[in-house]
Nucleic acid binder design. Structure first.
Lengths: 268, 268
DNA sequence: CCAAAAGTGTTTTGGATACACCCATGA
DNA sequence: TCATGGGTGTATCCAAAACACTTTTGG
């Protein structure tokens, strides 16, 4: 190799090294940043009192060595962030059974990654309780009792939990946390785990039925050791997110088309 | 300048130019992207039938020359995206009176900017009706009758309008669209513009009063040309976003503390 | 026959809507 | 005094909650 090539190569190598740690601008002066996707994978665990849990893995390198972090990874040049999210979960955790996922928010504090500025877009991913993930250093943690988290990941988990808590009240999002078929008692546990307060099975059943979210499968489930009436098995009517209760307040009203039946007196 | 420096400079210049148009990876193989913030600035315009309008400016260069685009700009190396948003609106449009702003979502389709891959984080910004903005080629457009928009900006506006429409039903977000003091009639127009259906003043007043969102200032507003009773002037109690109606469905219930007064019979 | 678990029937509650009616002003 | 617009009172509606009661199983 010529002396010229060597010197240029050397210059480029130094330049490259600088780019990795310093903010990089192209010749038009526009800065470029690393961009990663972050997964907040949640499930409801029902051994004991039901609780919402998040998937995390333990870091082996600085920064934040030893702390727990959310699954994450870079975005490839020809893929969307949604696709990147799916790809990282599939390749790193063998996780291909996320039942619902949606974008949460993007985090841009300049020092959130002390090694290099990295903008992160967080996703919420919901899985059923008994979902297998591979990897040795992974664990599930109750979202309200997190261990020491790396980066701003604690904040991200809190946001995800709040989002889920809101959405479970006005949508059918619980479909993504429940198995294909379930008893009302099991569904109740899921709601309790997310909402963190008691839920009346009777009313839960009637609310979800009225909204057309769930329907009985016709099958029965045998009772446990200590007897009891066998439970009916239910399923969610739709397995995609649907807003079932667009806010009741200040709604259109008046137009009979939006209400179906109206003006049927004598019921009170 | 030495021949050596010249040759290195030249190599770097070529390298720089390549980086600007091709996906860039640092030496660790991680791709870096341009990242911009996008502003969806909304107001309710009440001349005629009230309508929600968005601020846009006309492009003078390719790509999408002649089309209308949302205000946008890059994120500086030491600022958060929130700060970048505020900075671009202030410097480019003299707009420093955004009453409420929040992150909407990030957009990452690889070809959304045909010139170079750019990830964009969109923000919702709300202003009062008579807010001045500088700039010659800016205009306000009804969100449901947009002109041909550049990039994916039409989609972004639609998302923002939906977000606002939802939030106005369960929060005090209208404070950011209304002037400091207003009559109930004026507030009604704002709600009609956002919700796109008629709103009963009487009920609007009672709902917002019960929720503690608005209060009378004590002042009266003189009636118009054709007479009429003078209207009371109101203000929003808080000028920060507050969720006033955390979802009524499947709420905690039972605990008397969460309800205030209970068990007062004889009202039915 | 009893305990346990599932499901049904019925009452109560309270926010929200609809609408008739009263009040204050200008011409 | 009348048209116009603002504000109040009240009946109605209905989803949700509360809870007592019935049904079906295991021991």
């Amino acid at each position: 190799m010529s002396s010229y090539r060597l010197r240029v190569d050397n210059a480029l190598r130094q330049y490259h090294a600088a780019v990795r740690t310093l903010p990089f601008r192209d010749t038009s002066g526009v800065a470029k940043y690393r961009h990663e996707v972050l997964a907040v994978v949640l499930r409801v665990c029902t051994g004991g009192s039901p609780r919402l849990e998040v998937l995390a893995w333990q870091r082996h390198h600085e920064p934040f060595e030893g702390r727990w972090a959310l699954p994450s990874g870079p975005v490839e040049v020809d893929e969307t962030m949604d696709a990147a999210m799916e790809r990282h979960l599939a390749t790193k955790l063998d996780l291909t059974t996320v039942r619902h996922s949606e974008q949460l928010a993007s985090f841009s504090a300049p020092l959130r990654d002390p090694a290099e500025r990295t903008i992160a877009t967080a996703y919420l991913g919901l899985v059923a309780e008994h979902t297998e993930v591979s990897g040795e250093e992974v664990g599930w943690f109750a979202t309200d009792r997190l261990p020491a988290m790396a980066f701003d990941h604690g904040e991200v988990v809190a946001l995800a939990a709040r989002r889920l808590q809101g959405k479970i009240s006005y949508s059918n999002i619980a479909f993504a946390l429940a198995p294909e078929e379930f008893t009302l008692a099991a569904l109740r546990e899921i709601y309790i785990g997310v909402l963190r307060h008691d839920v009346d099975v009777t009313n839960l059943s009637r609310v979800l039925s009225r909204r057309g979210q769930i329907e009985p499968t016709g099958r029965l489930v045998a009772p446990g050791d200590k007897g009891g009436r066998p439970a009916r098995s239910y399923r969610f009517v739709e397995r995609r997110l649907r807003i079932t209760d667009p806010f009741a307040v200040l709604r259109a009203g008046g137009s009979p088309s939006s209400q179906g039946h109206r003006g049927a007196p004598g019921s009170h």
